[in-house]
Structures are given as structure tokens and as C-alpha cells.
């Protein structure tokens, strides 16, 4: 079976900035594929090129066999896009929005009405369909935003950070709907900077940073990159610089990074290393105010690969 999306060496620069620098990956049909990376990593630029909004400087991509360069209309016809920011007409109702966008996807008459009813059901807003979007909560707007992309039953859906800035309940609802889309046979290309979301949803994950793909694979495959290292997150009552040097030379510590009074460490075994860290802190006159030990995860992978925390 051909991949739903085949990305072939995509490049895009804005002036001196290389937003996407040679991206290549394949997304199998029926899977959830996540692009994970901090803000500015190049995820949205990649999505924009794959949805034909931006023309790549070089390279190409095929979406269900349609080239983004040679057959953009073919790409658009099989594609649903959920943009990062809510892109709806706030002075129209939920139903009016869906009806309008359905027409833009070529739906008409009874088929359009029926599909709008179905989508309202899917996003759980049947009883609020006549309400103006401007009166909706952030979570409800996000649901309509997703609903628009489902109207024409696309084979591939791009979701660009759909959970940014919403409450936990709405977030949960959206994550469930993404899984439901996969179960309905759709291919989902999902971008996020939330490690937990990528971990929960994805069949495959690609980590991006500064426009480059720095690692790809399943969650387990990626975590193996950092081996059995634990991640320790500590907060201290003083400047991190006073203790970083001491901790870097502590046996068992592989990596130390500091940000705003918080230090992230990759260590071989937290049980053995922690007492040494406390000793070094005491010697440096620094007091440790909190400790958070995490098992190997994508955040640790990103830290290991880039030397920075994912949320930098």
C-alpha cells in the first residue's frame, strides 16, 4: 500500500532562515503520525507546504499520490486541514460555518445538510448548532475548527497543534476525536510540542528542531536513543551556574541544562546519583527546593539530542 504522505527532501527558507531543511518522511495510511518539536522548529511550515499554502523552494511531496507541486487541487480534494489558530467566521453560527465550508469542499443540497448534521454529532455540538461561534468557549471553537476539516470525509487530515490554549476537558475531547478519526480509517498528520500528546496518540513520531528532522520512529524506538537514562528536574534557590559545574562532574550525570532556576539532568540511575547531587549542592551553598524524577521519555530524547528542553 502506498504511503498516504510521501515527503521528499522539502526545503523552505524565509530570507536567511531555513524554516525547513531537507525534510523527508513517509506517513503510512491509517496511522497517526506526529511531528514533535518546540515552537519555531518548522512544523507549521512543513504542514503549510503539504497543504499547498506554501510553495517549497525545492523537493516535493505526494499526498495520496497527488504532488503538491503538480497537482495542488488533487491534494486539496483528499485533504482536511485543522489550522493552528481557529479559522472560523465568528459572526456565523456553528451550522452556518459548517454549511459554508462544506460548500467550499463541493458539497451541495441534501448531501451537504446530512453531512453537516453528522459532523455536528461527531463534534458534540448538535444542541448548540445555531449558536454564534463568537459566543462559544475556546474548546467548543476548537471542536468546530476540527469539524470543518471532516466535512468532505478526507483521506488525510493535518492537525496543527489543535490543543493549544484550551482547558483539559476540551483537550481530552480533541485527543479522543483524533483517535476516533484513525479508527475511522483516516490518516492523521499531527503536530504538537506536547510530548505527552505525541506519546499517547502517535503510531510514529518525528522530532523536529530548527527545520531539521532529528529523529524518527515509534515512541519506544525513540526512547531507546537515551537508553535507560532517567531525567531529573530540580529547582534551586539560587543561580544555576553556581552548581552546574559541580553537577556536570558528578559521576553518573550525563547532561545538565539550566533554565530559569530549573535544572534538567540526564543521569544513569537517579537512586545513585541524587545523593551526590545534594552533596554537591550543599558544598556550593545552593539549596534544592524540589526534585522531579522522570523515566525515559520523549522529553529526555529531545534533551539528549538538542541539549535543550522541549519547551524552550
Amino acid at each position: 500500500m502506498q504511503p498516504a504522505i510521501e515527503v521528499q527532501n522539502l526545503h523552505k527558507s524565509f530570507g536567511e532562515l531555513k524554516a525547513v531543511d531537507g525534510a523527508s518522511f513517509n506517513v503510512p495510511q491509517g496511522e497517526i503520525y506526529s511531528l514533535l518539536g518546540p515552537n519555531g522548529a518548522g512544523k507549521t511550515t512543513t504542514i503549510s507546504m503539504l497543504s499547498t499554502l506554501l510553495r517549497p523552494d525545492s523537493g516535493d511531496a505526494l499526498v495520496m499520490g497527488h504532488s503538491i507541486r503538480k497537482d495542488p487541487m488533487g491534494v486539496k480534494s483528499v485533504l482536511g486541514v485543522v489550522p493552528q489558530d481557529i479559522a472560523l467566521y465568528e459572526d456565523l453560527s456553528a451550522r452556518e460555518n459548517l454549511t459554508f465550508w462544506g460548500k467550499m469542499y463541493g458539497l451541495r443540497g441534501a448531501a451537504l445538510k446530512q453531512r453537516v448534521d453528522e459532523v455536528l454529532e461527531i463534534i458534540g455540538l448538535t444542541d448548540r448548532q445555531k449558536g454564534r461561534v463568537s459566543k462559544f468557549s475556546g474548546g467548543m471553537k476548537r471542536r468546530v475548527n476540527i469539524g470543518v476539516a471532516l466535512l468532505h470525509k478526507p483521506k488525510v487530515i493535518y492537525m496543527d497543534e489543535p490543543t493549544v490554549g484550551i482547558d483539559p476537558q476540551s483537550r481530552r475531547s480533541i485527543l479522543d476525536s483524533v483517535i476516533a478519526l484513525k479508527n475511522a480509517g483516516m490518516t492523521v498528520l499531527y503536530t504538537t510540542h506536547y510530548m505527552e500528546e505525541a506519546q499517547e496518540l502517535s503510531d510514529q513520531i518525528t522530532i523536529m528542531d530548527h527545520g531539521k528532522l532529528i529523529a524518527s520512529g515509534t515512541h519506544d524506538e525513540l526512547v531507546k536513543i537515551v537508553g535507560q537514562m532517567d531525567r531529573i528536574r530540580l529547582t534551586i534557590n539560587a543561580e544555576g551556574a553556581r552548581v552546574v559545574t559541580a553537577w556536570k562532574s558528578t559521576p553518573g550525570v550525563k547532561q545538565v541544562t539550566a533554565e530559569d532556576g530549573t535544572l534538567n539532568l540526564l543521569v544513569d540511575d537517579s537512586n545513585q546519583v541524587l545523593p551526590r547531587l545534594f552533596d554537591a549542592a550543599t558544598t556550593s551553598g545552593v539549596r534544592i527546593t524540589s526534585v522531579d524524577i522522570q523515566l525515559p521519555n520523549l522529553e529526555a530524547v529531545f534533551l539528549h539530542l538538542t541539549g535543550r528542553a522541549l519547551r524552550d
Partner: peptide, 11 residues
């Protein structure tokens, strides 16, 4: 507001 780019993603 993003609705025009979104329109450009439709066929």
C-alpha cells in the same frame, strides 16, 4: 484571521 488561508486549502 486565518480563514482566507483555510479557504486556500479547500479545492
Amino acid at each position: 484571521e486565518g480563514t482566507l488561508p483555510r479557504l486556500f486549502t479547500t479545492p
